[in-house]
Amino acid sequence: MDNVRRRAWAGSLNLRVTVHPDLTLNSSNEPEHIISFRVPREIYLVLYFPYILERVAPELRTNVTDFYNGWWLEMEGVPLSWNFPAGVLFDSLTGLDPALRSSRHRHNSLNVWELTLRHEDQCPTNVIPIVRGRDQVREFWMHQWKQACFILNGASKQVMSLSKPDTMKFWDSILRRDQNSFDTIKEKILPTFDNTRYVPLRVHLALPQIRFLEPQAKVQHNNGHIRLGDVLSSEFPEWFPNDSSTPNLAKAVIQGIEVPLQLSVWYLYQELSSFDGFLHVSLCLMTEDASLTSRS
């Protein structure tokens, strides 16, 4: 198994979750209610809600009757959409240059990601309500794979034809962090290079607003591999000018790694695609203290 994929699968984030004061007993007199733990980059944060709530339940104003419905995490007042991998949320919402994370932004990025636990009867508009617990999360994840399979193959039959044991094993491999089992079933879904229609690609931005795009990314054109830089130049010419003499204004970050723009989208998909079947690219704007580099 390729070392790059192993390292991506093993990637993790350190979380520091503070319970919002409105949810706690004696909030005006008590210190902050905090829980710290580590999660894989390749997971949905919502799957950790039961763990968080069991830890903080004694400190809450009301009894916890549902570990999912009405709960969400937010960063600096911005609600997190649980339906993207944790690592993608971190990369896109922090927007930090990987080269600088270990220096200026050490406390709130590389070592600790500061989040707040919130609850209301109705979730924010960008947070999908969960009314059927973990089963709903699993079904959502399978729907992502059906979409990815259709983009890759032109049909979803490779996913739809998985046996029930394989489907459950596929999901359990994520929960148990079993990469060998995950990759074995994934190989049943992926086409060969020559039979691939498009790469399932999502590009995430936090500025000027939080959003994501799904550009059509072919694997080759005129018998040449399509590079990530080609796709980004087409979608974001103001940030990735199609001119070798003009510097880029952003970097492409995948799995917490700044990736060279000359790499093909097919290669990046093979090595760094996420557990939901998509290749997620977070755009990180250059900072004043980061040297601008020319488009590769």
Rank of each mutant, 00 (worst) to 15 (best):
V4L: 13
R5W: 04
N14R: 05
T24Y: 01
L25S: 07
S27K: 07
N29A: 09
S36Y: 02
S36W: 05
R41K: 10
E42C: 05
I43Y: 07
I43S: 09
Y44F: 13
L45F: 14
L47P: 07
Y48G: 10
Y51K: 14
V56M: 03
A57N: 09
E59I: 04
R61L: 07
T62Q: 11
D66Y: 07
W71A: 09
W72L: 11
G77V: 03
G77L: 02
P79Y: 05
S81T: 11
N83L: 14
A86R: 07
F90H: 14
D91A: 10
L93K: 12
G95D: 12
L96Q: 15
L96W: 13
R101A: 12
R101K: 10
H107W: 11
T116W: 11
T116K: 12
T116H: 14
H119L: 12
Q122Y: 14
P124Q: 08
I128K: 15
V131K: 15
R132K: 15
R134S: 14
R138D: 15
E139G: 08
W141R: 13
M142K: 11
H143F: 08
Q147D: 14
C149L: 01
G154R: 03
G154L: 01
S156P: 08
S156D: 09
S161K: 09
S163F: 01
D166M: 07
D166H: 01
K169E: 06
D172P: 04
S173V: 00
R177N: 05
Q179H: 02
N180W: 05
K186M: 06
K188S: 08
K188A: 05
I189C: 02
P191K: 04
T192H: 03
D194P: 08
T196D: 00
Y198Q: 06
V199R: 04
V199T: 02
V199K: 02
V199S: 05
P200F: 02
P200Y: 01
L201P: 07
V203N: 04
A206Y: 11
A206F: 12
P208H: 00
Q209F: 15
F212P: 13
A217M: 02
A217S: 10
V219G: 06
H221P: 08
G224N: 15
L232K: 01
P237G: 00
W239M: 09
F240N: 01
N242E: 07
D243S: 03
L249T: 11
A250N: 10
Q255C: 10
G256F: 02
G256A: 05
E258T: 14
E258N: 09
V259T: 04
V259I: 06
Q262R: 14
Q262H: 14
E271C: 05
L272C: 00
L272S: 00
S274Q: 04
D276L: 00
F278M: 09
H280M: 08
H280S: 06
L283T: 03
L285P: 12
T287Q: 15
T287E: 14
L292G: 09
L292P: 10
L292I: 10
S294W: 07
